[in-house]
Design a protein around this nucleic acid. Structure first.
Lengths: 179, 179
DNA sequence: TCCTGACTAGTCAATATTGACTAATCAAAA
DNA sequence: TTTTGATTAGTCAATATTGACTAGTCAGGA
């Protein structure tokens, strides 16, 4: 449903062909959705079927022909409906990374810490990358702000986890010393 | 991949049947994964196929027969490998709710604010629910802590968004007054 | 000029995921 | 007591998603 909203929203600003849509999304909106090319075409075809948009073949030079999609009034109506639904609902995020944490005690603490430090490095890199994203026009900027806020919050939390594990390693070391 | 890790990790503590696994996950680990019953059975069958676990039919009383799964050494090895991979990688979360925000300017500000206030209510309710989750044993507690931290951070951010929209509505009102 | 590797644009068979269903058991109300 | 609704346990056909592929274009170097 949300992916449809995204495609509709982009086509609403200007008509585009499939490849272009997929490209734009993966470049600018990777933090919201992970949309593969084949999925994009599937959704576009289905929405065209539903009368939300019309396809037009377009040959530019002698490049391969491209299917250009443009919104119909029914598509605009669907956009309005989906937009309100999306904004009004809180879709909780799923953290696949928490699955590992749930079984953290299956690993010797020192090794757990090593793994998490590698995770931290990636997270920190992502945060820096997010800090370097240039300003975007209009409300697209909210998405970037959110990404930054979220990554910063994640880093803060991960550091707390690592600190606690480090403490537990140290106290364990002391016990070793004393025995 | 992560879902496999989850099933392996649970079966590692004690053998369980499919329904029980699905039940436990949806009760306690809904913040990490959204695993439907049919998906759970599909994954369990596949992992049994791969030799990571063995199925045993078990009839208790005259209840319907249940398939109980228990880990093999190959399953334990897979668990160790997947656990390290999961812990060492930062899997960025996707926020489907950001798609709506990207098109926020398609709505009159007052209406956008109404929608977001409804989103806020849900988020606040989720946060309160998370605050009431009882303590869990061992490292499962990290998952709950993470959920609480994340929801609090989200609420903080959403409040900032709403505040800014409210400001823009007010300044717009003033312009109306002056004209 | 001809080759190579990257980009453009899209297809399709294989996989993964889900919703809707069956079918039995149990508790408790009518 | 028999009917209703909740719970347990799992199946399967329909949908959704993906990875691997085709096939043309273009730019630049040998």
């Amino acid at each position: 449903m949300d992916r449809e909203l995204l495609l509709l929203g982009l086509l609403r600003r200007q008509e585009m062909h499939g490849y272009q849509l997929h490209e734009f999304i993966n470049q600018n909106l990777a933090s919201c959705v992970n949309l593969k090319k084949s999925t994009a075409y599937f959704l576009l075809d289905r929405m065209a079927e539903a009368g939300w948009m019309v396809e037009t073949e377009s040959q530019e030079g002698n490049r391969p022909p491209r299917r250009v999609y443009q919104l119909t009034p029914a598509g605009e109506a669907a956009f309005q409906r989906l937009l309100r639904a999306n904004l009004a609902a809180h879709e909780p995020a799923r953290f696949a990374g928490d699955i590992g944490l749930a079984f953290l005690d299956a690993l010797p603490p020192a090794e757990a810490r090593d793994c998490l430090l590698r995770r931290r490095a990636q997270l920190a890199a992502d945060l820096e990358a997010a800090a370097r994203i240039p300003e975007h026009a209009g409300s697209m900027q909210w998405v970037i702000d959110h990404l930054r806020h979220h990554l910063a919050s994640e880093l803060e939390w991960l550091d707390r986890v690592i600190a606690q594990i480090t403490t537990s390693i140290e106290s364990h070391d002391h016990e070793e010393e004393e025995s």
